[in-house]
Simulated scan of single mutants.
Amino acid sequence: MKQHQFQPSLPPPPNTVGIVGWMRKNLFSSPLNGITTVLLAYFAFQLIWSVLDWGVFNASWIGTTRDDCTSTGACWVFISVRWEQFMYGFYPTEELWRPRLFYGTLAILVALMAYEKTPKRSWIFIFFGSAYPILMAGLLEGSMFGLPSVDTHQWGGLLVTLILAIIGIVLSLPIGVVLALGRRSKMPIISKLSVFYIEVWRGVPLITVLFMASVMLPLFFSGGVQTDKLVRALIGVTMFYSAYMAEVVRGGLQAIPKGQYEAADSLGLGYWQKMRLVVLPQALKITIPSIVNNFLSLFKDTSLVLIIGMYDVLGIGQSANTDPNWLGYSTESYVFVGLVFWVFCFGISRYSIYLENKLNTGHKR
């Protein structure tokens, strides 16, 4: 008896797989979807082409005065002439090596901390959160290394934006964790104080906080004690966002199943051991999106320090727009500032997605 032989499986039709298959399924699945896709693609192409024509193909890139802006597109000469102000504010020209050293070391440390296989990575984190800010503050201000003193009112641009954002992020997270634990504490005094702190700071706009830090905070110090305006802004931003961070962390703590607490208690772990080894790692992992969202809001809200007389990168752009020699180029200024904020925020967002995917092992089957 002749045995039946199965024929080999045929490959799927070419128009159902790959990019063609994806387009047929998602973009041209019906006549209405096809027409909508074509119209949207046409308008998107027109918009993208107009932006590229204005900002790249028909733009002026080289020059030193507005007379060099001879094209009908963007005048990026304005940005190149004001480049040092956008980066360093009004920092003395002969001392620009100091903020440049800060930028360089910051980029190196961030790259080392982001790379998983960096040797002694935990020590780099500790150094970045403890000694590094003190060393850089001494370098930029000049009080620690015998360098010429540069007052913080001369700082500005991206330098002020990064300092406010980094210090605010580094301090607000641990303070927020402590406040979240305090709010869930069984000790009435600690719990009530934590609730009072969180609700007060969450109920006040950040602009008001900055005004209070700039105007009212010096009144609480003894006579003759002078507080730097940048330090006051840092205190205000940190206290404000630590309250928001506390609520984010508290949400993560409440999401942890009760069995995790009971399992830690059954192992004989103390309160701080239980929080450090069992509860907080899980709570922080599931709140990464919310924590990063707060970080992004903090980074963008640094532009509000303009109202207390500090010139961050947006403030420098607005002051440059009032220069009589460069009137009419505010669009280039705002586009550049927006691009700076987008680059940093997009980088933070993408790294947070990477962390989520890496730490999502507990939900895989």
Rank of each mutant, 00 (worst) to 15 (best):
F221N: 02
F221L: 12
G223Y: 07
G224T: 02
T227M: 15
T227A: 10
T227S: 11
D228M: 08
D228Y: 08
D228S: 12
K229I: 15
K229E: 14
L230H: 04
V231I: 14
R232A: 14
I235Q: 04
I235L: 13
G236Y: 07
G236E: 09
T238V: 15
M239E: 02
M239Y: 08
F240D: 11
F240I: 10
F240A: 07
Y241H: 11
S242W: 03
S242Y: 04
A243S: 14
A243C: 08
A243Q: 08
A243N: 06
Y244E: 07
Y244L: 10
E247T: 00
V248K: 00
V248A: 00
V249W: 01
R250I: 05
G251E: 11
L253Q: 01
L253T: 03
Q254L: 14
A255C: 12
I256E: 12
G259Q: 11
G259W: 02
G259P: 12
Q260A: 13
Q260G: 04
D265E: 15
S266E: 12
S266A: 15
L267T: 05
L267N: 09
L267C: 10
L267M: 15
G268V: 06
L269M: 11
G270D: 10
G270T: 07
G270N: 07
Y271C: 07
W272T: 12
W272K: 02
Q273N: 10
Q273I: 13
K274T: 15
K274G: 11
K274P: 14
M275Q: 04
M275T: 04
M275R: 00
R276W: 13
L277T: 11
L280I: 10
L280A: 02
Q282E: 11
Q282L: 10
A283K: 00
L284P: 00
L284V: 05
K285V: 12
K285Y: 02
K285L: 06
K285A: 11
K285P: 01
I286T: 11
I286V: 15
I286P: 04
I286W: 04
S290F: 09
S290I: 00
I291S: 05
I291A: 06
I291P: 01
V292T: 13
N293P: 02
N293L: 00
N293C: 00
N294M: 09
N294P: 03
F295D: 02
F295P: 01
L296E: 06
L296S: 06
L298G: 08
L298H: 04
K300D: 15
K300M: 15
D301E: 14
D301C: 06
T302I: 13
T302P: 11
T302F: 12
S303Y: 03
S303N: 10
L304G: 09
L306Q: 07
L306N: 09
L306G: 08
I307S: 13
I308N: 03
I308C: 07
M310E: 11
D312F: 09
V313I: 15
V313R: 00
V313L: 09
G315T: 08
G317V: 04
G317S: 03
G317Q: 02
Q318G: 05
S319V: 15
A320M: 12
N321W: 09
N321I: 14
N321T: 13
P324Q: 02
N325R: 02
N325Y: 06
L327Y: 00
L327R: 00
Y329A: 03
T331V: 15
E332N: 01
V335C: 06
V337Y: 05
G338P: 03
G338I: 07
L339V: 14
V340W: 02
V343A: 12
F344W: 03
F344C: 08
F344P: 01
C345M: 10
C345S: 13
C345D: 07
